[in-house]
């Protein structure tokens, strides 16, 4: 039987495929339904947060920062409560990262402010002496892509039943509804409203002028996203 296989390339290929495929089937599939259930307090991303998440991905922030707190004392001391599977239910893609050149960011919204991020993104070494993180000055002039973020939200709602416009349970027993716009025009207006609350806490004059003129720089969206990481 074995010898026969070695002379029949087609059946050989089928054999190889079966051997390599079955690990994936047994290991990965059964976990799927369970792992994607959100925990209480996890809510979908708002439009500006989603746009910020795309800025985060565009600049591969995940190449240097993890979003996964492991259950060790040293980690929970440094970054907060260890990460739970359900907290990632609305993360498409996941952004755990694989290398901490910089610190973990999974709960950065708990201990950093808009103001801190603004200064830090302009001049990391000025805020944290010795930092090897480069400055991300172009984020103060490039505009965030709100339309794509809106399309991202729509895709999440339509294909994956992410509960936009529906109440989700919060930790204090109340519910919270994350609204989603009905049209592109409304989406842009909503994002601008969100952007104004962020830029109000920022010092950069140019950023404030841009937001006042109806434009949203990438940095505003990114900070909205970072603040949402809790």
């Amino acid at each position: 039987m074995f010898h026969w296989l070695e002379k029949h390339p087609f059946f050989f290929a089928v054999g190889v495929f079966l051997v390599i495929a079955f690990a994936g089937l047994v290991e990965i599939l059964p976990n799927f339904a369970q792992a994607s259930q959100p925990v209480v307090g996890t809510k979908p991303y708002t439009l500006l947060e989603m746009a910020g998440r795309e800025v985060y991905i565009k600049n591969s922030c995940n190449a240097c920062h993890s979003q996964l707190i492991r259950p060790f004392k040293a980690e929970t001391d440094r970054y907060g409560h260890y990460s739970l599977s359900g907290e990632y239910a609305y993360d498409r893609p996941f952004l755990w990262g694989s290398k901490r050149i910089g610190p973990d960011l999974h709960r950065v919204g708990d201990y950093r402010t808009t103001d801190w991020h603004e200064n830090h993104m302009k001049d990391p070494a000025g805020v944290v002496p010795g930092s090897i993180m480069p400055a991300y000055t172009w984020m103060f002039t490039n505009l965030a892509d709100i339309n794509t973020a809106y399309a991202d939200q729509l895709t999440n709602a339509q294909f994956f039943n992410v509960p936009y416009n529906k109440p989700v349970p919060m930790k204090d027993g109340t519910t919270l509804t994350v609204p989603m716009a009905k049209s592109v025009a409304e989406a842009n207006a909503m994002a601008l409203e969100e952007a104004k609350t962020i830029s109000a806490d920022m010092k950069d004059k140019d950023v404030q002028d841009m937001v006042a003129a109806g434009k949203i720089p990438e940095i505003v969206a990114l900070i909205a996203y970072l603040n949402s990481l809790k």
């Binding site: 990965i28 976990n31 799927f32 792992a35 994607s36 795309e54 599977s85 359900g86 907290e87 990632y88 239910a89 609305y90 993360d91 498409r92 893609p93 996941f94 755990w96 794509t148 399309a151 991202d152 895709t155 999440n156 294909f159 994956f160």
Partner: peptide
């Protein structure tokens, strides 16, 4: 642009 078919932990897996 696209959205991953899997979310969070599953996506990582």
């Amino acid at each position: 642009h696209s959205v991953s078919m899997y979310s969070g932990t599953n996506d990582a897996l």
